[in-house]
Each structure stands twice: as C-alpha cells, then as structure tokens.
Design a protein around this nucleic acid. Sequence first.
DNA 1: CCAGTAGCCTGCTTGC
DNA 2: TGCAAGCAGGCTACTG
Length: 303
Amino acid sequence: MPELPEVEVVRRGLERWAAGRPVSAVEVLDVRSTRRHGAGPDDFAARLAGSRLAVPERRGKYLWIPLAGEDSALVAHLGMSGQLLVNDPADPAPRHLRIRLLLEPGEDDADRSRELRFVDQRIFGGLFLDRLVPADDLPGQLLPASVAHIGRDPLDPAFDPEAVHLRLRGRRTGLKRALLDQSLVSGIGNIYADEALWRARLHYARPTDTINRTESARLLAAVHEVMEEALAQGGTSFDSLYVNVNGESGYFDRSLDAYGRAGLPCRRCAAEGRVSLIVRRPFMNRSSSYCPRCQPVPRRARW
DNA sequence: CCAGTAGCCTGCTTGC
DNA sequence: TGCAAGCAGGCTACTG
C-alpha cells in the first residue's frame, strides 16, 4: 500500500509530468471516488475542467495540486490501493480506473496530450477539490482546509520534535495509538509505526505520558530514518512517463525488521547472538509486530 | 475536548 | 469444489 515515501514519489512524478498542464476534460467513472467532494461528481468535473495544474505538494499521505491562479487545489488521498498514473490517452483503461483528467500540453512543450488517471481497487482513497488556507504555524504556507488539522510529517522541514514530545506527554494513551494519530504526526501507518518502534526499542503499549525526551527523540529519529530509507529505495520509479505507486518499491521486501516478520528471529537479537522471535498481536482491528526481548511489554501498559 | 471504535471497500487466502 | 468468513488498513464520523 502507498505509504508516505510512495506518495512523495508520486508527487515528484506529477511535478515532472503533470505540472503546468491545462485540464481540458474530466470524467468521473465511479462516484465513490469523489465521495469527499461535497458538491458531487458533476461539480467536481465542471470546476476542474478549464483549470491549470500548478506544482503538487504533500503533507503526510495527502497530496494536492493547487490550481493555477485560484485559491483551491485538487486534493488526493490514495487510501489503501490508490494510484495516480500519467498515461497516453490512447492507453487501454486499467481495471479499477475511477477518474480521468485529460491534460493538454503545457506552454513550453510541444508534447501531446496526456491523461492523469486515478486508479483504486478498494476505494478507500479519492479525489476532491478544496480551498487553500494559510497554515496555522506558518501563515505564508497554504494547504487545503481539509488537511489543516493534520500534523506535520517527519520529512517536513518545519517538523518540530520538541512540540511533538510535549503533546505526546499530554496524552493518556499507548505509544502506537499516538503514532497513528495523524493530528499529532502525519504520514505514519501501521508498517512504519512497527518499524520505528522496533528501531527505537520501544513497545507499542508504552504509556505516552511516561516517555522521556531521550525516548521520544529516538523514536522520531527512527521514523524519519525509516522513511528516508524507503524514499531512497523507492524514489527511482518516477523517471518515466508512468507515475508508479504500486507500493512494491523493493523496500518492503528487503528492509523490514518487524512488520510481517512474525515467527522469524529478531535481527538485532540475532546480531547479539541471541534468538528471539518476532511476535504479532491483535491491535486496533489490525496487528502489531514486535520483538519481546528488545521491546519488552511495559509494566503499566496502555493498549 | 479527549479516547476509543464502527464502517467504508475489494480481492486474496483460509477453513469447513 | 464452493461458499463464507477472515484479513489487509487510513481515515472520518460517531459514541461515551
């Protein structure tokens, strides 16, 4: 599934292949994919057609393309299975094509038309239009009103680990629940939460109000590190006409230490000459994977 | 206001 | 073999 690094790869691909282009036609093939556009799919298509795409931006897993000369943006969330692809309009339609935008050549290139496609199997994601508002903490920066409640992600230059630490201390919940709360820090999903906790040697049920500065710094550094590594490994696929977001960057196959490794030896323990098997526990209608030896369950756990 | 949860979705896997 | 249940999970809307 697309995680923050994959969404960033998509953003870069769109910057290269779609930015600057006028939208000449819009077709919504499945209205569920514009669910979050309150005024309905016809309004979505009518307002988008005739606009011109500016340079895409991202916060967490939200991606948006400001419309040139307007105070609004095309907002995208890929959900579990969404993809944004840039194709030749003549290319055959893929199975789960939900929305398509015909893009005319930009002013500076004699290239032919292209088609921006939103493909989504499970329809957890979608596209919608929203107005841009100034960011609370940095009024010169604009973001969609519907994204304003989301915290900055760990790759954001204005990400503030100290502020996150203080907010974490003020919570009365478990560490992983807090990591998955997008209003605190955005962009962390189940996979990255497990990986970061493993790297920081912290258990997911650790009460947030017992976290000290050293631990929160270690944890947030781990999140940053994991995301940068994934971006480095998945960041090569945008050098083509196709903006590839299939989530199979190769990173998931090789570099995961906790997620998906239940029953396998913890690599860190193995390096120390010990054998400890990664365990998987039900958590929030999904699961958590961790090493019981280097991430021991805290005495006062908050699940 | 805060913590916690149901429900949205489809396709693949597992179990009877 | 066929069908149903289980699983994957980000996010919003809702409840307590």
